[in-house]
Design a protein around this nucleic acid. Structure first.
Lengths: 122, 122
DNA sequence: TAAACATATGAACACATATACATATGTTCA
DNA sequence: TGAACATATGTATATGTGTTCATATGTTTA
């Protein structure tokens, strides 16, 4: 059962499990959702940005603080904060010329921690 | 308090909140842990790989099935499965010439779902 | 054994991206 | 108002990466 062979032009080989494929297809979220999800994880997938998020777990920080902490120049940090901001992972408040960044979302730490669990378990 | 200014050569500006910086520094996990974490999320940060993982939530699948499902050629899928395998996100079993892939870790879905929560909330 | 098939792998190419440098913006304070 | 300063942003560059094509590996079956 479900072993009917169907050749599909996009793949050089024939499909072995038609049932499995169509069931998986039905259970897949929308294309856009999966795209957004990948974009989100992409933001987490950089050492500098992970470090920034990690630092902000402790408290809000200004750009200069973060640059000093990570021993990187202000421009690099500012560029990365922009990415984090666009992903709605951090928010900011201005106090004069100083801009303080903080986490925008309580899920950030949960995603972070879930990742940690996977890392530690090896 | 904690407002002593210290100039650090790596940053053109002066540090405003010395206390905040050193507290954050103390709370940071090891460099290697953060690196590994970024590497893990990097794996999640690709549409093709997210789709593969998502498909495997339903059931194990062979390479051909996945290729057909995603309308991509077998080589591309195989390359991505390799990345997922190296990150210990999928495992495989061989049955003759067919290789069945499945999730290697119960955390995968939890990380995935945490990401979804963040996406949906906007 | 040879053909057919599923999968893996190496190389090449196109494209994305992180950082550095230079500079612009906007705020404070003398 | 102008100097000093924190931050943002545009551009260039080096590095990383996803996909494709060609081919290798390994298994089944005629």
């Amino acid at each position: 059962m479900g072993e009917k062979k169907v050749s599909i032009e996009s793949c050089s080989c024939s499909v072995i499990h038609e049932d499995t494929v169509s069931k998986a297809r039905d259970s897949m979220p929308e294309e856009e959702t999966l795209y957004d999800l990948a974009e989100l994880f992409k933001v987490f997938g950089d050492t500098t940005r992970i470090k920034i998020l990690c630092a902000l777990f402790e408290s809000e920080m200004c750009v200069c603080d973060i640059a000093a902490l990570l021993s990187m120049n202000q421009s690099a940090i500012s560029h990365q904060l922009r990415v984090l901001k666009q992903a709605r992972l951090v928010k900011y408040r201005k106090e004069g010329k100083v801009v303080y960044y903080s986490l925008d979302d309580e899920h950030v730490k949960q995603i972070f921690d879930q990742g940690l669990v996977h890392i530690k378990e090896r």
